[in-house]
Design a protein around this nucleic acid. Structure first.
Length: 894
DNA sequence: GCGGACTGCTTACCT
DNA sequence: ACAGGTAAGCAGTCCGCG
């Protein structure tokens, strides 16, 4: 495979060979061929293209057509396919053609094409309406320019509703903010991420016969599903079962030499020289391109033997060599390339006098895309909170290459002692090479997990891979909702219309400033409890949406006969006549995850590559399902509908309360519970079965035993406990000892306690363990008192600065005080930075670690923190901090 | 002028 | 630009205190 896609250069034509003054090679065969290759742009798909993956889409402003980027995995190339159906951009309005023709600004608009009358189902008024489609020649004519767009002209030129004759009380424009290529994807029923061929110039989906058997098997396990549900399960399964290709790709990193070592150069100015670029590709080719400079020594660092070092006499030639790469790889991976590497290269090339069409980069406001392939900026991807938490279980905490690399693939960046400009060639090469190596490997571990995850998300959301890797979960959900609206010929409602009709919530949140009441947390029973079963509803909220038919259309529907189908405890009702889209789509995704992908991802009898695919798929579904309730309560979501979220939460409270009562009734002690879980003390198998059956029958939802703790420790605090599993692993939830801001000095002591607790098997073991724990605490206390710590940084609190330091006006928290001190010392501090500070005796009682000295540490403050951290566990064990550290009751009183 | 009771702000966590 | 609920620590305010 690696060889194969380098063999085919049939596209190479025209354009004079570029001058390259590289030396100090030798080049491998592959690299030589790559250099010889000549570029043809655009890379048009031939009349008949072998099966290729739909990886991206855009609008070509010159050809005025939708453009699909197809990745052909055998040659490892991208092919462009332009629309040949004459599809055009449009928006919709409730004004008639007659009225619209009065608007000369519209009919004379250079982008205007024609009107059509269409019928669509309007979900908010629950009937088919006749509306006018305004077709344009260019998507920017509909919207997207600051002034004079069609969607703005209509309300501007009809300022008064009385000017026109319409049935509704308002002039409306719909679907004018959908990106044109998304519109194209929906209307043509295309599936990004799936496989297509080109036959006689037409784009045709490849038939998926190799997965038919599997799809049949999947449908077979959903016995209770309705025909409609089954149809959707099948639709999702087709998308998710089809295998992924190998992704031919290159990771890239650049270094720029700046006069001031601490400043990051501005990519919009691109004032300074690009001195090094490293490239690491999926065929194992590793290159470092260096710029020859005066006063730079060679150095004697060793790089891996297979790294090819190329030196360039001029920066221009170096950048040309990099651009050759960007013109030829289907996928280019960077870490922060949107805001730095690609942006810098593009502006630098401009400054150096490159012609526009020589630059392979499309520079946008916030992104940098490639004219040829697909640029994945891993920083954007890993920054996504949903990805961070649900796909990677919070394994990395700061979104920096070093941190993500260490956490996911155990690779660190190379630490620099000096600025880029002072490095020798080999030092610079080694440093830069490591970055592209980490970047590449972040897309390569676990059978190319990251690439496949992006592919799966692209399929679910009907989005290009470049968009899906940059945008948040609410966009993914919105886009598959849009797709399904179009598929059903439903009008996509405007957010303000949903709000006007269904915007009210009726419950009062516990937290001030929130819109509605959320979940229930059961008061824990403090103490140590042996044999604790944790039961939970798998995907509670998506289940509720499915079972209760929740969606913006069904909540508070217009049918009088549905008004008595009430949500428990609140006055909202739900439609009984028509299935809501969200309920159907999210419900079927949930069932597919719970009943197929989750079990398959744990099936040890399958080959590793399959398990990995199932695991990736279930992970992608998890990310989407976890957010599927929340988006309805987020005003940034296009189908924002607070009563849907409110009803979901209300039914959740109702469900857990019902089980609580049932458990009590069959005499199981409930120790704790949170939202969708119950912690049961020593239940019998029979009791568990009874609860499960009852839930299945009465609530129409599944209830599983998630795990069994050998023992669990609760304090009186909610969302705070420690549980030891049978295999000796320890779950710590919410305890201060695991929070990332506390000093490692305290954290280490806490971890020692954790290790000790893991070894406790029986209630009898506890006595010995308590003694050991007391000693751990005692030792820690003494070391503090004697000021015996390894380094000051062990005492640092690390707190994220949520805002720019000046923006704190109401209060000045300690980390902000420290940040301001740093600023006074000319250290650049910005929102999002992690501030490390220690507590000191003198005002203002905090100091950035790097400025503090041992003697000024306020030891008593640290003892107080040690105290409160351990108290969360100690009181459950019947231990007392003060007694442990040897204070008598009298001393404490004094 | 100072401490206690209180509220509010901020961060990090849980589901 | 998914939600609400909880814990902890500190900042700031008010009030009483001969």
């Amino acid at each position: 495979m690696a060889q194969k896609h380098l063999e085919d250069f049939s596209l190479a034509q025209s354009e004079p060979k570029k001058e390259m003054k590289a030396e100090a090679l030798p080049l491998t065969k592959a690299a030589t061929r790559e250099k010889d290759k000549k570029r043809v742009f655009p890379p048009l798909a031939p009349e008949n293209l072998p099966p290729s993956y739909f990886v991206s889409a855009t609008y070509d402003g010159q050809k005025c057509k939708a453009l699909i980027k197809l990745y052909e995995p055998v040659s490892g190339k991208i092919y462009f396919w332009y629309d040949n159906t004459g599809h055009k951009p449009y928006c919709l309005t409730n004004l008639s053609q007659y009225e619209l023709e009065k608007l000369t600004r519209l009919t004379q608009h250079q982008g205007f094409d024609h009107f059509e009358i269409v019928e669509k189902f309007d979900p908010l008024v629950n009937r088919i309406v006749s509306i006018t489609k305004i077709v344009a020649r260019d998507p920017l004519a509909i919207g997207g320019r600051p002034r004079g767009c069609i969607r703005d002209i209509i309300p501007e030129d009809f300022p008064n509703v009385s000017d026109v004759q319409i049935a509704q009380e308002e002039i409306k424009v719909w679907e004018s903010k959908i990106k044109y290529y998304q519109c194209y994807i929906y209307d043509r029923n295309l599936l990004p991420g799936m496989i297509y061929g080109v036959k006689n110039g037409d784009l045709v989906p490849k038939d998926l016969k190799e997965i038919e058997e599997m799809v049949k098997q999947i449908k077979g396990i959903f016995k209770g599903a309705t025909a409609e549900e089954l149809q959707h399960i099948e639709q999702w399964a087709r998308l998710l079962e089809y295998p992924a290709p190998k992704f031919r790709r290159v990771a890239m990193d650049i270094e720029v030499c700046t006069p001031i070592a601490t400043r990051v150069p501005d990519p919009r100015e691109a004032t300074y020289e690009v001195v090094c670029v490293s490239l690491y590709d999926s065929d194992g080719q590793k290159r470092v391109l260096l710029l020859k400079r005066q006063n730079t020594r060679e150095g004697n660092e060793n790089l891996p033997a297979d790294v090819i070092i190329e030196k360039f006499d001029t920066e221009e030639n170096l950048i040309r060599a990099v651009f050759d790469v960007l013109w030829s790889y289907p996928f280019v991976i960077t870490f922060n390339g949107d805001d730095f590497d690609l942006r810098y290269l593009a502006h630098r090339a401009e400054n150096l006098g490159f012609r526009r069409n020589e630059i392979p980069i499309e520079v946008g406001k916030r992104v940098c895309l490639l004219k040829y392939g697909v640029h994945i900026d891993l920083y954007k991807f890993f920054f996504n909170r949903s990805i961070q938490i649900y796909a990677f279980n919070n394994r990395y905490r700061d979104v920096r290459l070093d941190d993500v690399g260490t956490a996911l693939i155990n690779m660190e960046k190379i630490r620099l002692e000096k600025g880029i400009g002072e490095l020798t060639y080999t030092e610079l090469a080694k440093y830069c090479f490591r970055d592209s190596e980490i970047t590449f490997k972040l897309t390569n571990f676990e059978h190319e997990l990251v690439m496949k995850l992006i592919l799966v998300l692209a399929r679910i959301s009907s989005m290009p891979m470049d968009d899906v890797s940059r945008q948040g979960v609410s966009r993914w959900i919105r886009n598959f909702m849009h797709r399904e609206h179009r598929k059903r010929n439903m009008l996509i409602p405007n957010a303000e219309d949903i709000i006007a009709k269904k915007g009210k919530t009726v419950t009062k949140a516990i937290i001030k400033g929130k819109k509605y009441k959320g979940a229930i947390v059961v008061e824990p029973v403090p103490g140590v409890h042996f044999n604790v079963a944790v039961m939970d509803f798998p995907s509670l909220y998506p289940s509720i949406m499915k079972v209760w038919n929740l969606g913006y259309e069904s909540i508070l529907c217009l049918h009088p006969e549905c008004r008595n189908n009430l949500v428990p405890d609140i006055p909202h009702w739900v439609c009984t006549r028509k299935r809501a889209l969200e309920s159907l789509l999210i419900g079927s995704l949930r069932d597919l995850r719970v009943q197929w992908y989750k079990p398959k991802s744990k099936d040890k009898t399958l080959p590793a590559e399959f398990v990995s695919w199932y695991n990736i798929t279930q992970g992608a579904l998890k990310v989407i399902l976890n957010a599927s309730y929340g988006v309805f309560g987020a005003d940034s979501f296009d189908l924002y509908c607070p009563p849907v979220a409110e009803a979901t939460a209300a039914i959740g409270r109702h469900s857990i309360t019902q089980i609580l009562n049932k458990a009590e009734q069959i005499e199981i002690q409930v120790l704790y519970g949170d939202t969708d879980s119950l912690f049961l003390k020593n239940p019998s198998r029979k009791q568990i079965e009874e609860l499960t059956h009852w839930t299945e029958k009465e609530l129409k939802m599944s209830l599983d035993v998630d795990k069994v703790y050998r023992y669990a420790v609760f304090s009186s605090r909610k969302k705070n406990y420690l549980g030891v599993l049978e295999d000796g692993s320890v779950d710590v939830k919410g305890l201060t000892g695991k929070k990332r801001h506390i000093p490692i000095f305290i954290k280490k002591a806490f971890d020692r306690m954790k290790e000790r607790l893991a070894r406790v098997k029986t209630p009898e073991d506890f006595e010995k363990a308590k003694k050991d724990i007391s000693e751990i605490v005692q030792g820690c206390y003494m070391r503090l008192k004697r000021r015996e710590w390894d380094s000051l940084s062990d005492l640092a609190f690390n707190v994220v600065l949520g805002e720019e330091p000046e923006r704190y006006t109401k209060t000045t928290p300690q980390h902000v005080k420290a940040a301001r001190i740093l600023k006074e010392n000319r250290v650049d501090v910005r929102a999002g930075d992690l501030i490390s500070f220690v507590k000191v005796i003198r005002e203002p009682h905090v100091k950035p670690v790097e400025l503090a000295t041992k003697n000024e540490i306020d030891v008593d403050k640290y003892i107080a923190h040690l105290h409160s951290t351990f108290d969360q566990v100690l009181d459950a064990l019947g231990l007392d901090f003060d007694e442990i550290i040897g204070l008598t009751k009298l001393e404490r009183f004094m």
